[in-house]
Amino acid sequence: MSCPALIDFEASCLPEYGQSYPIEVAVARIDGSNRAWLIRPAEAWRYWDWSDEAEKLHGITQQMLDDEGLPPEQVLAEMAEFVAGCPVYADADLDQYWLEVLCQATGTRLPFPVHYLGEYLKEGGYTRPQVVAALEEAKRRLPKEHLAREDAKRLAMVVRLLVDGEVG
């Protein structure tokens, strides 16, 4: 079982602090496979906002994006290929927003919808104590935060722990 897939973005700043754009995205399946991409800023984003506070959280600099980031079109194509056949979930609606910003910059349609993880958990009949226990165990195993790859892997682990009945 490799589905569902969990997605997480890091951004130049939080939307309430300015016009933000996606700088990193990661997707993890519950079988443990995962991918992460640094996103080279699209020309349309060159004058959008950057937050030093956000940079301190995720550790990604503008120079890293220029040097190591991939073109938004390539990120979208590779991400769509990686999640093919899997429903995609996130723990925040901001992830859908940043996917939309990425698509707008490339002039492409949304390659897949991003569903709210809470819906999946509710449909699965998982109780709050089960979810909390799974989240605590996943945080114990993967403690790094504010890195898209680690956050996506942690969310996928939460789902896997619940599916496998390893908690609560």
Rank of each mutant, 00 (worst) to 15 (best):
S33D: 04
S33P: 01
N34A: 14
N34P: 06
N34M: 11
A36M: 14
I39R: 08
R40T: 02
R40P: 05
R40S: 10
A42K: 08
A42F: 04
E43T: 15
E43Y: 13
R46N: 05
Y47E: 13
Y47S: 14
Y47T: 13
W48Q: 13
D49H: 15
D52S: 13
E53K: 10
E53G: 08
E53I: 09
A54K: 03
G59W: 12
I60A: 09
I60F: 08
I60M: 10
M64F: 01
D67M: 00
D67L: 02
E68R: 14
G69F: 07
P71C: 01
P72S: 03
P72I: 01
E73V: 12
Q74N: 07
Q74G: 03
V75F: 12
A77N: 02
A77D: 03
E78F: 00
M79L: 10
M79A: 03
A80T: 05
E81G: 00
V83S: 08
A84C: 10
C86S: 14
P87L: 13
P87Q: 15
V88P: 12
V88H: 09
A92I: 06
D93F: 10
D93T: 12
D93Y: 11
D93P: 08
L94H: 05
D95V: 11
Y97Q: 05
W98Y: 13
W98M: 14
L99V: 02
L99G: 05
E100L: 08
L102S: 07
L102Q: 06
C103L: 03
C103R: 02
Q104S: 07
Q104H: 09
A105V: 00
T106P: 06
T108R: 14
T108Y: 11
L110Q: 10
L110E: 07
P111W: 03
P111I: 02
F112H: 00
P113A: 02
P113R: 02
V114Q: 08
H115A: 07
L117M: 10
G118S: 12
E119D: 08
Y120S: 02
Y120P: 01
E123R: 15
G125F: 01
Y126S: 10
T127H: 06
R128T: 00
R128N: 01
P129I: 06
V132K: 13
V132Q: 12
V132S: 06
